[in-house]
Write a protein that binds this DNA or RNA. Structure first.
Length: 225
DNA sequence: CCCCAGGCGTCCA
DNA sequence: TGGACGCATGGG
């Protein structure tokens, strides 16, 4: 079974089962960027509270946040957890935005450069950078997260040791380079993870992907290490 | 009470 | 280079 076929089968199963997820849940590119930082190791439910706080206080714009003392910002985003840490990370991101002449100008940079710029920000790692590239800039990179790794390793499709970039390459080498596809695929994997592939309470027997086991066996994916 | 959530940086061998 | 740890709130 080729990787391309397996990846397509999984996508089709998930899309039929769950339907389109309409990601990212945010109203503007800047809101998406803020949400991407706030959701680091944090449930989206908590992030929503923090973003609602910012909106209510009319703080959710680059210019306003840039002028806000970090301690004040931290108080508003408290529900998202790690608020002191994340206030600093948002400040770092705002410095990049300002330095690049604004959100529009930053997000208009070519994919590879945009990714490098984001990764140069202290507090923005591979997943946060890729989330911004895909969901805020609409450029085609595949976003990997803990759910992606957990789902694929539990189904025996990759090894436990498969790292972020190996897993990302697996998708990007075997799917057409299409931002809309990458968008929906990642969103569907998160949906699946939340409902059927939690860390300690996997509902594997009910997993929509259970049919894959019979079709694909335990052979894994051909070019997965 | 416990464990977990759409990570990342630091430290230390 | 890689494994442990801190960061922190809200939900189940």
């Amino acid at each position: 079974m080729s990787a391309a076929v397996v990846l397509r089968d999984i996508y089709n199963l998930l899309l039929v089962h769950f339907g389109p997820q309409h990601w990212w849940p945010g109203e503007s590119p800047f809101e998406i960027m803020v949400g991407a930082v706030l959701t680091q190791n944090t449930s989206w439910q908590n992030v929503e509270k923090a973003i609602a706080n910012l909106k209510t206080a009319e703080l959710l714009s680059p210019a306003v946040l840039a002028a806000l003392p970090p301690e004040v910002l931290a108080e508003h985003i408290r529900p998202a957890g790690y608020h002191n840490l994340k206030a600093g990370r948002l400040k770092n991101l705002l410095a990049l935005i300002t330095g690049q002449g604004g959100v529009e100008a930053l997000l208009a940079q070519p994919t590879a450069l945009l990714r490098e710029l984001l990764l140069s920000v202290k507090g923005i790692g591979p997943e946060t950078a890729d989330s911004i590239v895909l969901y805020a800039a609409g450029q085609p990179v595949f976003v990997v997260d803990t759910y992606t790794h957990r789902i694929f390793s539990r189904h025996g499709l990759i090894g436990e040791e498969c790292d972020y970039f190996q897993l990302q390459d697996l998708f990007m080498d075997n799917l057409e380079e299409d931002a809309a596809l990458f968008n929906e695929y990642h969103a569907l994997l998160v949906r699946l993870g939340k409902e059927f592939c939690k860390k300690t309470k996997p509902k594997c027997e009910d997993c929509p992907l259970a049919v894959l086991a019979r079709k694909n066996g335990k052979k894994g994916i051909d070019n997965a290490k």
